[in-house]
Design a protein around this nucleic acid. Sequence first.
DNA 1: CTGTTAGCGCGTTCAT
DNA 2: ATGAACGCGCTAACAG
Lengths: 358, 358
Amino acid sequence: MASTPRARKAPDRSGRAVTLQRVADHAGVSIATASRVLHGGGGRAVGEELRGRVLAAAAELNYIPNAPAQALARARTSVVGLIVHDVGDPYFAAIATGVMKAAREHDLMVMLAATFRDPQLELEYLRRLRNQRARAVLLAGSGFADPAFVGSLAESLGRFVADGGQVACIGDHGVEADTVAPDNRGGAEAAIGHLWELGHRRIGVVAGPSGLTTVRHRLEGVRRALERRGQVLGADCTVEADFTREGGRAATLELLARRPDLTAVFALNDGMAVGALTALRDDLGRSVPDEVSLVGFDDLPCALDVRPALTTVRLPLEKTGVRAMDLILDEGADRGSRRIVELEVELVVRDSTGLARG
Amino acid sequence: MASTPRARKAPDRSGRAVTLQRVADHAGVSIATASRVLHGGGGRAVGEELRGRVLAAAAELNYIPNAPAQALARARTSVVGLIVHDVGDPYFAAIATGVMKAAREHDLMVMLAATFRDPQLELEYLRRLRNQRARAVLLAGSGFADPAFVGSLAESLGRFVADGGQVACIGDHGVEADTVAPDNRGGAEAAIGHLWELGHRRIGVVAGPSGLTTVRHRLEGVRRALERRGQVLGADCTVEADFTREGGRAATLELLARRPDLTAVFALNDGMAVGALTALRDDLGRSVPDEVSLVGFDDLPCALDVRPALTTVRLPLEKTGVRAMDLILDEGADRGSRRIVELEVELVVRDSTGLARG
DNA sequence: CTGTTAGCGCGTTCAT
DNA sequence: ATGAACGCGCTAACAG
């Protein structure tokens, strides 16, 4: 036709976008019938004859349903949101991998959001995911221990749920929601136990920001393991810094300056451990593990690349992502109480730990 | 429960979801006015009085627009799709980081899709992104050199564009689309040049699958650099394997078995380089760089953690993601010819390369 | 400046 | 088994 005033879509060859209506016309059936054969949900079946015609028409026209329109009509989308601190961090990248694999098996798309550790941004993304009417949101990464923040987080999550969305946390976010979390305390205990068995009695801890729940839990594990053996974690044996390689390096320098007599260092994640290794070996000239033993946490790929290969606590990161998706998908179970899945961790002994000297 | 026949949404306290209509009612204005103050686009301004009432009502009711509904009405969404091989790979994770940062600045959400190097899955995700009516798609990662695949890819992309979507490639996908790509050839030439200057004349190459365009381009750079210096790359000087650490290790073993006299190895990405380092040092007992020099490509974080620290070609990965988003956002420029942005790379000399012996 | 109204593409009763 | 018609929440003419 000459003028199409309201045409806003890029036109298909024959002038308009390929909609269900067009498929129906092409097949000589009603739009309802077309909808039924293409998206089946309607309950009733459709006769072989028409069914074939619709399928053929759809194929010929290369019809693709309009997800936003379906979302509007069904009041439900097929997207889940994944909120992480930083995709560039191998820890989150591994979780994301698990999530994506699970999503694909269930025909879900995942919207990724990275907060770069800014709590406000986390709230902001929650809004945007609500705006998008995401069917569910996966909150990954360590939570922030700040009560005020946890309050607003709970509120945002509450709204999301009120809108009909589902929520699952990966790790402890201080919120009443289904959660899958690795056994951080147990992992830390295992790490300390390992060092203890090797004869280490003066162990230092290179910790991340205590505002992160993950850090708290790992520290708790350290304390518990030590106390069980009649020792308390001295205040001068813990240094807190950024949860990164650079943080680990700085913290280790400070730690060893305060306590040059330490025979072992436990870094609360592998990033920090790699930094600690650099500090120990390159800055301080202390050989690992001959003079100082080192243990990390997470078992990121880099733990293997580094020399000596890092003894660390392995987290089933990818599986964590998958499990979180399972929580989301099991819609039946969300009645009743909160579900909590604790994932087992495993100490992986490699070359960065050895017998304590003397 | 009583019976709310068509209620499909989780109800708000007062019984229904918070829609624009409700906000309008609450503020005592028409829905059009509410729309105008909340989403401004309508052209005309709104009086202070009403404007204030609408804002207040929206805040009080905690209104959040329904993106699918807006998408339907406007025939345009605010989501861009990002297709990568594997988020777990630091290479793609870095690109994704750049994309996400740029997206946030422009109020766009990103849907992530990981193909795990399965071409069919790439096509499938293109369909799904078209289904979602993504405003644009970013095709990241190395393309597949298979002509048949490139054909279907071009077709899929064509449909996407016909539907009004935009496309930008990261790296060469053999397709006529706006592209941002690092200078793979130049980087490889620089790497070889560096080794040459150090006196190396017997250089082996540890390559990824030749089906990937990235690998091809890097190999071309190698050949060009060598030929410029009067040498040709011997067939026995190149081994092809998976583009991974394990691939690098295996390929290096094979390479050195064939040519024990090599004084330098160029691995076509850092993953392979790390594997090569393991093979050289641990399996073969050859010291790096004293006996064999090693160069990688990409400058992933692990290049720094490894000992000796890896000499490698740095790619501006995060910037690559940002630039690709720029192409998407510059809608004005998409008339006329194809835009190609070539990103400069930089050789970073660290400790894995040294003078050739003898 | 503000309100009315007609779609956007689709799912879903409700008749037939 | 099939079709007609309404509504999902919102934008964008168009009319006042």
